[in-house]
Design a protein around this nucleic acid. Structure first.
Lengths: 226, 226
DNA sequence: CGGGCGCTTGATTTGAATCAAACTGGGTGG
DNA sequence: CCACCCAGTTTGATTCAAATCAAGCGCCCG
């Protein structure tokens, strides 16, 4: 995989997450061990990812979803740059698709990970940490999915995306997915997502530069409680 | 930990799940490495479990849940005998409680696992497999949570429990938790759970020996679709 | 310059929450 | 031993939030 500035930055973030060791060398090794693939919008990426043991999204986003017999789609996980996928057991019930054009994923085969671990033992800890993050993502999403009102869900989704998309500034978010995707992710209707956005906008909590570029005017809106 | 028949059976099941090596010896080693604790109904077990890296439920059941500011409770995971917990990052937002009296849990500290792995390398694979199961459990539950109707949720819950509780016969289930717990697990109201059960009973799909002992009269009822 | 996709708004319907109340069985204390 | 109590469960009546049905708007892309 090529050492583009963005992947250097990304793997730097991964490595410094909790492991104190020679960052530059390990980062170079990880980038070298990764095999990059890229997809266009809505293109399935099951095949490539399934062959690898784990993969890290570098750019764009990937959605993991199931199709119900009714034709409904349920997005169970949304993987944005810096997140890993592939810790679960391969399951044909779930499909993977690129969300946007130029979605890039760095795949690691099992033995590449093992060789990396041999040279840099903390990589094993790093992998465990990424698996733990995947679990946390699911548990948190489970909290959002259930029990709260549709407006709460949308608010929680905005809060989550604000946190995950731009580690630096929190005042604006560019949503990686469409309203339809948000609806399928939160388990509500598109119209309801739209209405919730409108309510937040009218209250002055957010402003929409475009439907996808959202300015957080009142960060306290992201807090819990109705 | 003592070698009771049930824990021998349990660890035997764990070990044979996908690892072909001398089972009896490894099982003895695992049981020896585990430190057993037991709790009474509704007793919190955060403290002990949090200190360990991972733990395996041997008897009873454990619920992992969050409390909302509103006082509502959301059960995100239900761990029954044979399941592991503790792969996620420790998170104070989630609480752990024993569901029934005489809930028994086998805890493994990080270095005990490492020592086990050194003697029996496939134990590492076993751990990864258990983490993958935890992820699958969450993803599957996410699908159930976001299912459209409440009746679907209850049906899916019964199907899941039938599968997880008694690996052998599928015609009866003894639910490990109360209607209130089921409600908080599925994100619906107690009354709705009860009504859904009543509908299934009236249709002849199930029969209730007691509210907790359920006989599956029509297994096709467990299939997908409304 | 269509045409379709993504987004928004309005009107109506509906499924589940909520409020209210009665029933069960097991356990406790008089 | 019985009366009581209480947690768990069930059923009914009412309310309400979100799904559904319907329609229009803007914009990007072919």
């Amino acid at each position: 995989m090529r050492e583009t500035p963005e992947c250097v930055e990304l793997f730097g973030r991964l490595l410094t997450r909790e492991i104190p060791y020679d960052e530059a060398e390990a980062r170079t090794a990880m980038i070298a061990a990764a095999r990059e693939t890229r997809w266009r919008r809505n293109q399935p990426c099951d095949a490539v990812v399934a062959r690898s043991s784990v993969a890290c999204v570098v750019a764009g986003a990937v959605r993991k979803f199931a199709l119900r017999p009714s034709g409904r789609r349920q997005i169970v996980d949304l993987i944005v740059p810096g997140d890993f996928l592939g810790f679960g057991r391969p399951d044909p019930a779930f499909l993977l698709e690129a969300v946007s054009n130029d979605t890039r994923v760095a795949c690691f085969t099992r033995d590449r990970i093992e060789r990396l671990t041999a040279r840099f033992p903390p990589v094993s800890t790093l992998m465990q940490s990424c698996a733990a993050d995947a679990i946390r993502r699911l548990e948190h999403h489970l909290l959002v999915q259930s029990r709260i009102t549709a407006r709460e869900k949308v608010r929680a989704y905005l809060a989550e995306m604000t946190r995950r998309m731009k580690p630096g500034r929190a005042e604006t978010v560019t949503l990686p997915i469409t309203r339809y995707d948000i609806a399928d992710h939160l388990g509500i209707a598109v119209e309801t997502v739209s209405r919730a956005m409108t309510v937040l906008r009218r209250r002055g909590s957010i402003a929409l530069r475009t439907p996808r570029d959202i300015e957080i005017r009142d960060p306290s809106m992201l807090a819990e409680g109705r």
